[in-house]
Design a protein around this nucleic acid. Structure first.
Lengths: 350, 350
DNA sequence: ATGATGAATGACAGCGCTGTCAGCGGCGCC
DNA sequence: GGCGCCGCTGACAGCGCTGTCATTCATCAT
């Protein structure tokens, strides 16, 4: 089968990709390529007979449209890019899931990238994503390098920042105030009678949300517990892990033995701290109270059940998806800032 | 500015996309488009002077190459697609992370999709992904619809199935035997003196790995504990959650009060079961022993610390990435089946 | 019967790149 | 001095689609 057919000139195209193309489907179906294109994208536009002929040919050839060609011709990619800090332990998993559900219902695919809580890496990722000409982009966080902001602005596509709050979003923002959430926690613990709180989070990293939470803690302590020192523990090289939480419990007992409540920037830390307290035979909240952040599923099953803040994880994803889709449909719509709030959940640990 | 310039004919391109193109960069740099393309993709090919002129023009114009055009022209997309069952609680998060690290080091981007443990949905996702002409594809699991297998075979790109084992992979497979892993657990508990095990997992879903674990359990029980009934609990509508684990503990106590060890198909269940045992004041392993699967970070912090099986989460991702890259470079390489094994971790819960 | 409408279709250029080939000048070699 | 060689560059076609416009034909009101 290596010989050229005698009936046709041996003019095989130079770079034959070997895959079925729209033209071949058209030839088989006995219609023009235009009709095949229409039948696939919007059956309403073609007659029933044409539609059926095309579908038969598509099945027969196992035709899979080449989206790269489609993107190029239509200048729409049918994709949305999302950049998030991490996947493990992901608070963001629910957000991504909801986002993907929202988008895929509209036939839009999600491109996912993780920055590892690193804004320089984030910039690289955004640059790479922009090369794929997504129709929109979803970011976690509202803190980015100036380069990232600039690129995003220039891309002229809808941008939704999430999980954070800002008065100066790039475009749209869907989130809540991490700062206010921590303030709310401090208000609760003060009301519950605790007077010597210690904040704990991963502050070595570039996680602006952790920082916002820290700031909210500091504000509230200064306001509600005047004269009280602002105790802050950084998990540093322990990062975001259960182990870091266990370590934190030791730290607070050693470094701040007077502290009566450990205010964690994540349920992950709080989980580790509670388990470590169990191990040490410490009573929670008797010997030390503990609060979390995020209301993970495990938190209500711990002993004691964790007092925490519920964040609108999947609502963020859903709304972000809706917003992106709306703005793809109407690029001139005004930017939207959506504060989804948070819900303090008081259980037994504080 | 709506008037056509008198000097040039008013032949504005019909569908102007408004973004900077390679041609514009070339004009500004004073070289041909070919040279710009080369300078960007492989600086070695052009003179230093040309390279610098191009880079200056790229900076000045904020040029971002259009990958859709590049894909179309070169028939390579620079992407790899990955399909996994879920993201929440994700055992797979580490795998994806390692995979992404491996690929992005080679300048390849990862397209991620989740099937929700649904093989029909998986097929849709694969179809959609294939439209983007990825250079390779990574699947979680070795059980797919025939349609999926067929598409994947026809795509003529490297395919790596993961987290599972099969004698008849589509192309490559990197994983371990879930069946054998459960057998190993049963061997341990029998050796430790337990005689009445109950297996628990989410069997209502189409998770073939859960099923393989169940089968491994059954095999081992029949072999090592002849005469013993094969007790199996399905979390059913509770799915994969901590809550399901708590529920399981209740179930095993009620339905199989004689059972002395609960063999969970995931550390998530085991975690819920241990916490529920704490709540009920049951001694673990005294009243009932508990084993998990996956060795999540929290497992070693529980009380008692969980006996489980460590799976090569990120090694799977790393190897899968390497394999994909190798096979992109050399499409004629022979398929590889890589059994990465597993490691039983004996702690205090069984 | 006639023109006006509208649905369905086809022709064609072009989206922004890359592969390929040809051409240019400078160099070392016989 | 002529030859081949090599590094670098530019011209050009074409990847597989879609937007746009032109065309056809049946349908309808006049």
């Amino acid at each position: 089968m290596t010989d050229a057919e005698p009936s046709a000139p041996p003019r095989l195209t130079r770079r034959n990709t070997g895959t079925v193309t729209l033209d071949e489907v058209a030839a088989l179906a006995g219609v023009s390529p235009s009709t095949v294109s229409r039948a696939i994208r919007d059956p309403e536009q073609v007659s029933l007979a044409a539609y059926e002929a095309v579908m038969r040919a598509v099945d027969e050839t196992n035709y899979v449209p080449n989206r790269a060609a489609s993107n190029l011709a239509s200048n729409r990619s049918g994709t949305v890019a999302a950049v998030m800090p991490a996947m493990s332990y992901s608070v963001f998993a629910d957000t991504v899931h909801a986002l993907e559900a929202e988008l895929s219902a509209a036939g839009v695919q999600l491109f996912l990238g993780t920055s590892g809580y690193d804004e320089a890496r984030e910039e690289q990722i955004v640059r790479a994503f922009l090369g794929r000409r997504p129709d929109g982009i979803v970011m976690v966080g509202a803190s980015h390098t100036e380069g990232t902001r600039e690129m995003l602005r220039r891309a002229r596509i809808p941008v939704v920042e999430t999980w954070d709050w800002s008065d100066d979003p790039i475009d749209c923002i869907v989130g809540f105030s991490n700062r206010d959430a921590l303030t709310a926690i401090v208000e609760h613990i003060v009301e519950a009678g605790y007077r010597h709180p210690t904040f704990a989070g991963w502050l070595t990293g570039v996680d602006s949300r952790a920082r916002a939470r820290r700031d909210g803690f500091e504000d509230a302590v200064r306001r509600l517990l005047p004269g009280e020192p602002v105790r802050v523990l950084d998990t540093a090289e322990h990062g975001i892990s259960v182990e870091a939480g266990a370590w934190l419990l030791g730290q607070v007992r050693e470094q701040h033995p007077e502290s009566d409540v450990l205010v964690c920037a994540s349920d992950i830390f709080a989980t580790g701290a509670i388990l470590e307290a169990q191990r040490r035979g410490l009573a929670v909240p008797g010997d030390i109270a503990i609060t979390g952040f995020g209301d993970f599923e495990i938190s209500r099953h711990l002993h004691p059940a964790l007092t925490t803040v519920q964040t609108p994880d999947d609502l963020i994803g859903r709304r972000a998806g809706e917003l992106i889709l709306e703005r793809i449909a109407d690029p001139d719509a005004a930017p939207v800032s959506l504060d989804l709030g948070f819900t303090p959940i008081v259980r037994d640990s504080a």
